[in-house]
């Protein structure tokens, strides 16, 4: 099998486009007229490998595999002659992407060459301290947006408290619950606290309602009776109720 012979390290490739260019070159395919079925088959083999290796770019390979299969499917569909309208080859977009990527890949080789050429030359790198930096404004002179972002990220990291669980904010306020109790007491002479609890779904609402009762008690808007310790609370209208 050809592919077995050409098993190559997937990490060598910079991404799915790089791999496709490799396959095209290896099999001397025409980039203008890519045999989609063949290249899809070869590509999928590598994608399986990428998934196995848990490559961090595996997702990009899978996405390309889906694109290839879509193109393949569209090429199998009979072409409906639609008047004079020219039907676009389903491979056109892929071809353009490959050509564009190829341009930059070539440029990358040039950059690599320039890097190799410049590497042995050293120049004076400014020291961390220089006379100008005694002036505070000078320190700020060369700060880039990225430096600020980094600093912020660093600071915020130290600032963050470890979050073990999150709490959804429930919108319930003391005055809301006072209003709620007022309404109930207008309709009923007596309220059972235990009976109220059954209506509430969250602890917070229970707590706030209890605080509301205490507040109303303080203002003598309600009276509260309890027959014995831990027994139900009976709430009724107080002297200033309704004021």
């Amino acid at each position: 099998m050809k592919n077995q012979l050409h098993r190559i390290d997937l990490e060598m490739f910079e991404g799915p486009l790089d791999l496709l260019l490799f396959l095209i070159k290896r099999d001397e395919l025409n980039i203008y007229d890519i045999p989609i079925a063949q290249i899809t088959k070869d590509f999928l083999e590598y994608v399986d490998l990428a998934k196995e290796l848990k490559l961090h770019s595996a997702g990009d390979f899978v996405l390309m595999a889906a694109t290839l299969m879509k193109i393949k499917a569209r090429m199998l569909l009979p072409i409906e002659a639609n008047g004079d309208e020219e039907i676009e080859d389903p491979r056109t977009e892929l071809m353009n992407m490959l050509l564009e990527y190829k341009r930059y890949k070539e440029a990358t080789a040039t950059f690599s060459e320039m890097e190799r050429f410049e590497r042995p030359h050293y120049y004076n790198i400014p020291a961390t301290w220089s006379p100008q930096q005694e002036d505070n404004t000078a320190i700020l002179e060369d700060v880039k947006l990225y430096d600020i972002m980094l600093t912020f990220q660093y600071l915020i990291k130290n600032y963050e408290e470890p979050v073990t669980h999150s709490v959804a904010v429930e919108e319930v306020t003391l005055s809301e619950q006072i209003g709620f109790l007022n309404g109930l007491l207008q309709a009923n002479a007596k309220l059972s606290f235990a009976g109220l609890l059954e209506k509430f779904e969250s602890r917070l609402v229970v707590v706030v309602t209890f605080l509301a009762i205490l507040e109303m008690l303080r203002n003598r808007q309600v009276k509260v009776k309890q027959s014995k310790l831990f027994d139900d609370l009976l709430i009724s209208r107080g002297k200033t109720f309704g004021n």
Binding site: E14, L17, D18, G59, D60, M97, Y101, Y104, T108, F111
Partner: peptide, 28 residues
């Protein structure tokens, strides 16, 4: 190689967004 590719794209197309770069490279 990845950094050089990214650098090549930025230097010819600047100013560019991350999205511009990724759509040419086809990889994050």
């Amino acid at each position: 190689q990845a950094a050089l590719e990214t650098l090549a794209i930025v230097s010819y197309k600047q100013p560019v967004t991350r999205n511009d770069i990724e759509s040419i490279r086809g990889v994050s």
